[in-house]
Simulated assay, not measured.
Amino acid sequence: MTVITYRQAVQDALREEMLHDPNVFLIGEEIGVFEGSYKITAGMLKEFGPKRIRDTPIAEEGFTGAAIGAAMVGLRPVVEIMTINFSLLALDQIVNHAAKIYGMFGGQARVPLVIRTPGGGGQQLGATHSQNIELYYAFVPGMKVVAPSTPADAKALMRAAIRDDDPVLVLENLALYNTTGEVPDEPERIEIGKAAIAREGRDVTVVAYSRMAVVAREAAERLAGEGIDVEVIDLRSLRPLDRGTIVESVKKTGCAVVLEDDWLTYGIGAEIAATISDGAFDWLDAPVRRVAMAEVPMPYAKTLETAALPSLDDAMSAIRETIDAVTRRA
């Protein structure tokens, strides 16, 4: 095991897959000479050359469309979109083409395309650069969406995404790039669509993904000192969603809290709550609680931005309230 940053884990996965398969190439804005806005592609232009590290104009619809065409004829493009906010400019290409080509044409063509893009607030980038709109893509049949929270999962899921024959959106989070963790020296295989039980517990299930999975683990460790034993489910994948792991955990603990970085209304958490209602309703000892960001465009002012984002304290309070509700019923 080696301790590296999330940023390095993503870069290592890209580099190893490019060495493994000559059909893999990277395409996006400023990924070559400038080495990427977040330096994920540092040194890669020099190593692989301009044929496989393709700098593009500021034209998300255009270069995403070009990547879809390349994927249809046998290449494995990895598109870097500078932030998930800019993916809106390529929404037609992603939703109406990449996600639908295999189904619309009876499997005559596949689209082994990866779109990797960071999202999330907390960096004072304003409302149009701080969104968590992964729901847009997790909503669409034909897409796969993964959201790793650790360096190990970031590396393994990137490798899995590149080798997948379907379009995969890899959601990164700006707040995670400098976080560190152990990564196996030997390549790790993770199945897209399989959640991880990040921490086993008996009192309450906490379901989260991306940055909020990190918050969930920290909340669990702190609450252990109060005698609350939290089980943490790190989704890792939003589509396919591992409903089975969620349901079995809630059947064991009898209650659940869902943490998400996006807006509460119509969010990922709503789907998880519905999944729990469908599969574990008779086991619930308290209502499912949800923690999400404030329903506002992300403020620029740091104090307001911090107030809008779900916090560790918010998560811990929701868990305590859930345990209190179970205790009162008992």
Rank of each mutant, 00 (worst) to 15 (best):
A216C: 06
V288H: 05
E248D: 14
E221N: 12
E191A: 13
D185N: 12
V296T: 15
D282N: 12
D242S: 06
A294Q: 13
I246C: 05
V258E: 10
E191G: 04
F281K: 10
V232W: 08
E191C: 01
E226Y: 10
T275I: 01
I228L: 11
R202A: 13
A219L: 01
V232E: 08
A270K: 09
G269R: 13
S237T: 15
G267T: 12
A196F: 03
A175M: 14
G201R: 08
G279P: 13
S237L: 10
P187I: 09
W283S: 15
V257E: 01
T245M: 06
D203K: 05
E231D: 04
A213G: 08
E218K: 14
A208G: 08
L264K: 14
V206S: 11
L264V: 03
R202P: 01
R239S: 13
I246F: 04
A195E: 01
V215W: 00
V258K: 11
A219I: 06
P184D: 11
A274R: 12
P187C: 03
L284K: 08
A274G: 13
R222T: 03
V183Y: 06
T180N: 08
T205D: 07
T275G: 01
V291G: 09
M293N: 13
V232T: 07
A198T: 09
G225N: 07
A213V: 12
R243T: 13
A274K: 08
R202D: 14
A195N: 02
P240A: 04
V214Q: 12
V207T: 03
D234K: 03
G201Q: 09
S249N: 05
E231C: 02
E231I: 00
V247D: 09
W283T: 10
V258D: 09
A198N: 09
V247Q: 06
T179C: 07
G254D: 07
A294L: 13
E191S: 12
F281D: 04
I276H: 01
G193T: 03
L264R: 15
I272Y: 00
P287A: 10
A292L: 06
G193F: 02
C255H: 01
I192A: 07
A274I: 03
V207K: 00
G227K: 04
I272Q: 02
P240F: 03
N173D: 15
I276V: 14
T180M: 15
E271G: 12
A292H: 07
A208C: 04
I272G: 03
T253G: 11
D262W: 00
I246R: 01
S237R: 10
G193M: 05
E218R: 14
V232P: 07
A213C: 06
A280F: 06
G227C: 03
A220D: 02
T253W: 11
T179W: 07
L235I: 04
M212H: 15
M212T: 08
R217T: 03
V257C: 04
E231Y: 05
A294T: 06
T180V: 14
E231M: 09
A219T: 08
R236K: 11
V296D: 08
V296N: 09
D262F: 01
K252R: 15
D242R: 04
Y177K: 12
I228P: 08
A220K: 05
